[in-house]
Design a protein around this nucleic acid. Structure first.
Length: 603
RNA sequence: GGUCUGGUAGCUCAGUUGGAUAGAGCAACAGCCUUCUAAGCUGUGGGUCUUGGGUUCGAGUCCCAACCGGAUCACCA
């Protein structure tokens, strides 16, 4: 690593001069600002006190010594306390020569125990929306980034396929569906079921209105809540739904059949969406099969005395001494809650995979839940609970605020993808880009561009931040966008194609010589990729990869504008530039793939 | 109210062990296609980094306080 070598060189030179060792952690590098000559800069302020010299003098002395000690340094200059080092071209040539043809530059060999990444985790009572898109893209991309960085990753999905909300859809379908199916209506299964969920809610609200006391509006908040709870309790629709849930839990054949059929429709719908989105899983868990799992753990906790039972028979974990609250683990009727089954599924995964880490990609509204989950596990003697990591991401908001299913203010995943592809098509046609493609190739291209733009739009934002999506402004195809990256790649491919047509061959050797600023800048940037990848993995941040490929693409486009490639007359220089093109295209492709973006060869 | 989290250009966002004159894109304006793909490139304008203190050679970045926003604190999942 360049920085490490330079650090040692700095320390050695410093010792030569002043006969004492500078504190290693203080020897830090930053990229030299473009207005000064140099590649890397050492800030010498921290050392000036040590040897009683002013920073500028110190930098000059150390710089001269480093120059004398190593051929790595071509030149140096000093501005105030900043020692700017210019690395010799030979170093960059050497790097370029050894890495330009590496198929997956920066990628590490996979080893070690797996990381289990859970993401997606949909409910089967409604179709996926923009929030799920963020979740799915994040989960998938973070997994890819971890893999590229040498981690063994297992992607899992936990489908919430049971509970009162599913029963609401089932009940609505039975009451008002007239036996309709995805086939008979021509609707995707998940959308069909989602419509019945909404319908239930609508009818239920109507019913509720009748059941609320006439003076409801005049009551204070507390009284209103009580009145509502009372009305919900006696609501015939709600009673029916609850009855259905009881039958489901009792294994009632008719209910189970209906449940199987309807969930089947939803899964078919989800499969289409997942496939289009390009995400996948090694294993899918279903809550209907895991919801009883945590009970044994709770019993164990009771036996050990780390949990306790109240008089009403409910079971709790007291976390007040850790600054949290008491947490319910079993209801008074003995049934389990969300937390209980999460305890159970975590235990199951540990048994199945012996993972080094469990990552849960779940929205930031559940931070508290996962905090509690970890602590309860540790109380139960499961030290691996500490290895649980909640990768929490921010909500996607609309200009009107949060998306709410019931108020119809959600951006549907399928609709959004349709729109992206349609816009990609319109833009391509307007620019006359797809003339030479067959209809089939063109459709494929529109998909790649539309989805690429969507994925980049979502992933370029730091996961933990709330992000804004404005449906009235379509996602851009110019500027800092997925299309820009793809376009740059296609452009390079075009140059490489033309080179082949003109019979310009790639040579094994990299022609020696000097590097022009634009050529060098690209090579320097590519040199930094393994570090970016490592940072992205550590921070679970696809945004870092997105920023990198944007910077690289931007740099390349400037190079492309300033420098001829095929028309360069100096054959050595032409060769070098072609080789740079080749490496840039490969790196852009590999890095963009980590975001789930496909890279077209023409567009 | 407690806890967590955010506040950077008109808008969307970068800015990660504290470093030099805070950066992109969009939008606006002005240029560049008979020459390797103009989904591109170049330039102009646009900032009290919410506010006030503190730490130090140096703070958008660290600490404290205030203001504004969001999340959460369920016998829902």
């Amino acid at each position: 690593m360049l920085e490490e070598v330079l650090r040692q060189l700095f320390i050695k030179s410093f010792k030569n001069l002043y006969a004492q060792e500078p504190p290693v952690q203080q020897v830090n590098f930053q990229k030299t600002r473009p207005e000064f000559e140099g590649d890397l800069t050492i800030v010498v302020f921290p050392f000036s006190k040590l040897v009683a010299r002013n920073p500028e003098q110190l930098a000059n002395e150390v710089g001269a010594e480093m120059l004398k000690e190593s051929s790595l340094i071509a030149r140096f200059n000093v501005v105030k306390g900043f020692l700017n080092l210019l690395i010799s071209d030979a170093f960059w040539f050497d790097f370029f020569k050894t890495h330009r043809c590496v198929e997956q530059f920066g990628r590490k060999e996979v080893s070690g125990r797996p990381i289990v990444v859970e993401y997606s985790s949909p409910n089967t009572n409604k179709p996926l929306h923009l929030g799920h898109i963020r979740n799915n893209l994040l989960g998938w991309s973070v997994s890819e980034i971890l893999k590229a960085n040498g981690q063994h990753v297992v992607r899992v999905n936990l489908v919430n396929d049971r509970g009162i909300h599913i029963c609401k859809s089932m009940l609505a379908w039975r009451k008002w569906g007239n036996g309709c199916t995805p086939e008979s209506t021509g609707k995707k299964g998940d959308h069909l079921i989602g419509d019945f969920y909404v319908l239930f809610d609508k009818e239920f609200k109507k019913e509720l209105k009748e059941l609320l006391p006439p003076d409801f509006d005049t009551l204070d908040e507390k009284q209103q809540e009580a009145a509502r709870a009372k009305a919900e309790d006696v609501s015939p629709l709600m009673q029916e739904a609850r009855e259905m849930l009881r039958k489901w839990e009792a294994g009632d054949a008719e209910v189970r059949n209906l449940w199987n059929t309807m969930n089947g429709w939803v899964y078919d719908g989800f499969d289409v969406t997942y496939k289009r989105l390009g995400v996948s899983f090694e294993k899918i868990y279903y809550e209907s099969q895991t919801y009883l799992l945590g009970k044994e753990l709770v019993q164990e906790g009771l036996d050990k005395g780390v949990l306790y039972r109240r008089e009403d028979n409910s079971v709790w974990c007291d976390l007040r001494d850790e600054g949290l609250d008491e947490k319910l683990l079993l209801r008074r009727d003995g049934t389990s809650v969300y937390m209980t089954q999460d305890l159970g599924t975590a235990q199951l995964r540990v048994k199945e995979y012996d993972p080094e880490k469990l990552i849960y990609v779940v929205g930031n509204e559940q931070i508290y839940h996962f905090d509690v989950l970890k602590r309860v596990l540790v109380r139960l003697g499961r030290e691996w609970g500490k290895q649980i990591e909640h990768l929490s991401y921010g909500m996607v908001e609309l200009p009107s605020g949060k998306m709410k299913s019931r108020e119809g203010t959600v951006v549907d995943a399928d609709d959004l993808m349709d729109e992206m592809v349609a816009t990609a098509k319109a833009v391509s046609e307007e620019l006359g880009k797809a003339k030479d493609l067959s209809a089939e190739e063109a459709e494929k291209l529109y998909h790649v561009i539309g989805l690429g733009a969507l994925k980049y739009f979502i992933l370029k934002v730091d996961p933990k931040k709330t992000m804004l999506f404005n449906p009235s402004e379509s996602i851009d195809f110019n500027g800092n966008t997925g299309s820009f990256i793809q376009y740059t790649h296609a452009r390079i491919c075009s140059v490489l194609r033309k080179a082949a047509e003109q019979g310009i061959a790639f040579e094994n050797e990299v022609p020696a010589g000097d590097l022009l600023p634009k050529e060098k800048e690209i090579i320097v940037m590519m040199y930094g990729w393994p570090n970016v990848l490592a940072q992205a993995a550590e921070n679970r941040s696809p945004a870092m990869v997105a920023n990198f490929i944007f910077d690289l693409a931007k740099e390349f486009n400037q190079f492309y504008q300033e420098c001829s490639i095929l028309k360069e007359e100096d054959v050595n220089r032409r060769q070098l530039r072609l080789q740079i093109c080749d490496m840039v295209s490969r790196l852009l492709r590999n890095a963009a793939n980590l975001l789930g973006m496909e890279m077209p060869e023409r567009m």
